[in-house]
Design a protein around this nucleic acid. Sequence first.
DNA 1: GCAAAAGTGTTTGTTCTACACCCATGT
DNA 2: ACATGGGTGTAGAACAAACACTTTTGC
Lengths: 230, 230
Amino acid sequence: MAGPRASVAAHEVLAVIFQVRQQRLSVLLWRRARPPYEGAWVLPGGRLGATEGLDESIRRQLAQKVDVRDLTHLEQLETRGDPERHPADRTLATSYLGLVPADTDPATPEDTAWHPAPDPPPMGFDHAAIMRAGRRRLRAKLSYTNIGFALAPREFTMSELSGYYRAALGHDVAATNLRRVLLRRGQIEETGESVPSGRSGGRPAALFRFRARELEITDAFAVLRPPSRE
Amino acid sequence: MAGPRASVAAHEVLAVIFQVRQQRLSVLLWRRARPPYEGAWVLPGGRLGATEGLDESIRRQLAQKVDVRDLTHLEQLETRGDPERHPADRTLATSYLGLVPADTDPATPEDTAWHPAPDPPPMGFDHAAIMRAGRRRLRAKLSYTNIGFALAPREFTMSELSGYYRAALGHDVAATNLRRVLLRRGQIEETGESVPSGRSGGRPAALFRFRARELEITDAFAVLRPPSRE
DNA sequence: GCAAAAGTGTTTGTTCTACACCCATGT
DNA sequence: ACATGGGTGTAGAACAAACACTTTTGC
């Protein structure tokens, strides 16, 4: 009746950090300096400290180790605990999805680099699968939340914003319709200002901003919504 | 630069088990026999074994400790690791959402009981918050996946099914529209058989079944869907 | 026949995509 | 003037809620 002996496993936290860079969804990876998986790319992270919470830990590690401090969004993804996932010792890993706005360029150390998320280099451990889970989560939330605020700068034109969506979703996004969808949902608003057109001419683009800078569900009951009157 | 000393924390797995019982969404709770929180209700679960995976562990514990074996769905919810969440020792907890179909009645031991999910008794630790997270997850997934298969028996009438949805969503669900939504999405199909009407008369109800018995996303791109042609 | 429950037809409203057209600017 | 990119109008489709109406049964 008794189960296997209770274990006291090591626990690490990992982060899937996305940023849209040059029109492409990019993920921040770390080159591993020692076995196992020496030379492979892995997600940034490390051991959970004795007195810190999980969120706290991943924030600390990102700040210390890859110098990423200006996350606009951070949420927990999943926890993996397969006994085989770490070749040497038993290690559980809790992963997070983190987003950096497109207009910042965090100064990351030598051994880290941005890689294209749709086509990553060979990755160690189960980190490739975790990264895919992060992409799925981001894609889904772009559909029914205001999570775009975390990918975009504070102010942006609609064609810029559609570029971020295009990169994150992996398919074309028409600026003209995106504008209407996000305006109707109250996610974005005009700042009143506009950017002058470039040297090739064209009408100046209006500037927009997200009305909230934290996650909100803006399209909750797409279906099976509660009755309109009692 | 170095962070806090790495910890080796205990790890437990917990389950939010829901079942629709007498038209109400119910959650399976355990009465705690010793401090801390002696006498309070908690989610079933226990320590992770040294050689088992997380999914494996929660399945084992549910089978051994509360005799729940016939889960139709099980998915990971979240991991909590706040240093304060456990009064005595540091314990991380990974929670799962599990569903039991309405037509089974698992023989649970003395110290466990089903409680109404919308109105639970006082619960120990952070388990009330975890339970709420489970409810939110279930509600959301009823909207865009076929997760109803896990709440319903293999075969059911539409008015029975709308009862399960009503209990899980917490608002009225019209059988007539539910039928069309789920049929259009290809989630359910007619078995061809029907149930005779009761003593009060009425037209016999057709029997339906879910076409798949595992989770599928059936309303993926409610919005921001990819262009129809390239 | 009448009540009861299941199922169908139909209206209405919302939401989104697609696409034609108009607007403001640089050269 | 006209090319260029931004913005608006609008048609059409898909989808779902609401509700009146029809069907099939028990009594």
